Amino acid sequence: MPPRAVVTGASSGIGAATVRRLTKEGFDVVAVARRADRLDALREETGARVRTLDVTDEDAVRDFAAGLDGCELLVNNAGGAFGAEHVAVADRADWQRMFSVNVLGTLCVTQALLPLLRAAEGGGTIVNLTSTAAFVNYEGGGGYSAAKHAEHALTETLRLELNGEPVRVIEIAPGMVRTDEFAVRRFHGDREKAAALYEGVDRPLTAEDVAECIVLVIGLPQHVNVDQMVVRPLAQAAQHRLHRGPLFGP
């Protein structure tokens, strides 16, 4: 029987790339997201099973978990940034949305699938996708950074609480990743602002780069736990240290 994986936030970006990569590795993947049309296209492309689901809906998540026959790997990828205003004028609804999906969604899915992960033959693995914003704050990022700090705290605490059980808890914290939607959603659909974020940056990370990191860490022997992987493009030395200009030849 192939190892079974659940990937949330799978309709685009890092989630979709992770589904593609895991299916290539031979996983039986259940791709979870809210947008049914995107999931249907991903199913046709990869052969993954799909489930339309809001990870913040506790009852729906519980029903989803009850319908699974097992799970060796959970990738908590569902999340996002909404709004880039300063704290003084930030929209509370944006903050509420970020906490709901990034923190409570991760909590909800983890709680529901943890019995299956504990029962997995050979051990289970949880991978939480946070961000470098989980460690470093910056102007305009208060809500997103606060949510990712909370998700980091959840991850670290879970690892402590599961000590002595055969379940790995891994955090992957990407820096600048250019995907089709992340920055556009953050700037409420303003594509010019979204494009300016990446302007002149030679090769920001792609969703596929992050998916490769996930495969790398989960492919290690089960007794090897990569507590945290911080991954950035070469052009980004730190949250506030970003080189704009060519780094590589043509």
Rank of each mutant, 00 (worst) to 15 (best):
L242H: 04
R97H: 12
D37P: 13
R20V: 04
Q239F: 15
E212F: 00
V61N: 06
A235C: 07
A5D: 06
T206W: 10
A10W: 06
A10E: 01
F27Y: 14
M229D: 02
I214T: 00
L158M: 13
A112M: 03
L129G: 03
G200Q: 01
G26A: 02
R34P: 12
G47A: 05
Q239D: 09
P246A: 02
D202A: 09
G79I: 06
L68I: 07
V136L: 07
R92D: 11
Q111E: 11
E208F: 02
L116G: 11
L154A: 01
V210H: 01
D57M: 07
G15T: 03
V177T: 06
N128D: 04
V61Q: 03
A5S: 03
D59K: 13
E44I: 00
G140A: 07
E25L: 15
V50S: 13
N137V: 15
V32S: 10
A238E: 13
R159C: 03
T56K: 01
T125Q: 14
L39R: 05
A112P: 13
A10D: 06
C213A: 11
V177I: 13
N76C: 12
H240Q: 14
D91S: 04
D59R: 14
S11F: 03
P204W: 00
A84F: 14
G123F: 09
G164E: 05
F64W: 14
K193Y: 08
R49F: 04
A81S: 13
G141H: 07
H243S: 08
P204F: 01
H149T: 13
D69A: 05
R62P: 07
D91R: 14
R159A: 14
T23M: 11
F187A: 11
T132Q: 13
N77S: 10
P221K: 00
L42I: 08
A84C: 14
R185E: 14
R38P: 03
V184G: 05
R21H: 02
R159T: 11
I172D: 05
G70K: 04
R21P: 03
K24I: 00
T52H: 00
T130H: 10
V231P: 10
G15H: 05
A195I: 01
A36I: 08
L234Q: 08
A88R: 15
D63M: 05
A211V: 07
Q96C: 01
R92H: 15
R51E: 15
G249N: 11
R118M: 15
G13L: 01
A48C: 08
A183G: 02
N137G: 15
F82C: 00
R35N: 12
Q111W: 04
L162E: 04
N102Q: 02
F27G: 01
A120K: 12
I172F: 05
